[in-house]
């Protein structure tokens, strides 16, 4: 194995293009686990942390661009980012432990393509996009289009994600992410839900995005769940309908972390609880 640490995006793209069996290293909290448990044996590990662009959190067009090497802890330390997208930042800081949060990145979380990734439902709800760089140039892609199945992404050979863009936060909007784990920390989500919504001056929901994690091969964006909120005050009947729609959309498997019945039921519970937090953050009735 070879370790490379290029200093520019161009060099990284070149290195990646010439090495079909290269893996990108940012936080390493998934990559090293997979290497050490003999699941993968890359010829090249490409450390992108020495590329300036990947290290920065910057405001852009009223939104936020977060570099691929920015750790969850660094996101949590940026007060303005936290104020705009608390759900996304909280989700990133649910990954692993304090130690893991000092290294892990939301881009890595996304490109690991686990349906249970904590930050992904939050990013999907937030309508985030990623900037993909590669031999054929740069393209912006909605977050939910990156994972295609467990462990597989839509990235083409030689491509990698350089940053995430969180759009400008609308007036009277809020986002939230909740997951269920058996312990209070250190577990992979058994089920999770992200909600981002916007209210009008009267407290009526005008737009919403609802996402679910760990209930399908990829994180789901569930428009029919969002529809239960739009036009309502996100009140009890709407929340009830949301829970039903979320449970109906959940198509999980049974595994060591949970049963099908459990995940279906709790998907609704979490969607409902996340919607209440998002509504309150948007300044709606509490």
């Amino acid at each position: 194995m070879q370790y490379l640490a290029p200093q520019t995006l161009d060099d990284a793209v070149k290195a990646l293009a010439s090495q079909p069996d290269a893996k990108v290293l940012a936080g390493g909290t998934d990559l090293l686990v997979r290497m050490r448990s003999d699941m993968i044996h890359p010829d090249v590990v490409l450390d992108i942390k020495r590329i300036d662009e990947t290290r920065r959190i910057t405001q852009e067009d009223g939104g936020w661009r977060i570099g691929a090497s920015v750790s969850a802890a660094e996101m949590g330390e940026n007060a303005a980012l936290v104020a705009d997208w608390p759900g996304v930042v909280e989700a990133a800081n649910l990954i692993g432990s304090t130690q893991i949060q000092g290294r892990c990145t939301i881009v890595g979380n996304l490109c690991n393509a686990s349906p249970a990734a904590d930050s992904v439902p939050a990013m999907v709800a937030a309508n985030a996009t990623v900037r993909v760089v590669g031999p054929e140039g740069t393209r912006d892609v909605p977050v939910q289009e990156i994972p295609v199945s467990p462990g597989k992404t839509s990235l083409k050979p030689g491509e990698f994600v350089a940053s995430v863009f969180l759009p400008p936060r609308p007036e009277r909007s809020g986002d939230a992410y909740l997951r269920f784990i058996p312990r209070t920390e250190m577990d992979i989500a058994v089920v999770s839900a992200g909600v981002a919504l916007q209210l009008d001056e009267g407290g009526t929901c005008t737009a919403a995005r609802v996402s679910l994690g760990a209930v399908a091969p990829t994180v789901l964006l569930v428009p029919e769940a969002a529809d239960t909120l739009i036009g309502t005050k996100v009140d009890e009947p709407a929340l009830e309908a949301l829970a039903k729609a979320a449970s109906a959309a959940a198509k999980p498997i049974a595994d060591k972390r949970g049963t099908v019945e459990y995940r279906v039921h709790v998907a609704g519970v979490l969607a409902r609880r996340a919607a209440v937090i998002a509504r309150n953050r948007a300044g709606g009735a509490s």
């Binding site: 312990r183 209070t184 250190m186 577990d187 992979i188």
Partner: peptide, 21 residues
């Protein structure tokens, strides 16, 4: 698992209590 192999041979899914529990 159905195949008789241990599904959780790590501290991730063999869940000993953590401080916050």
């Amino acid at each position: 698992g159905e195949d008789g192999t241990l599904q959780n041979p790590g501290f991730l899914d063999y869940r000993v209590p953590v401080a916050s529990d």
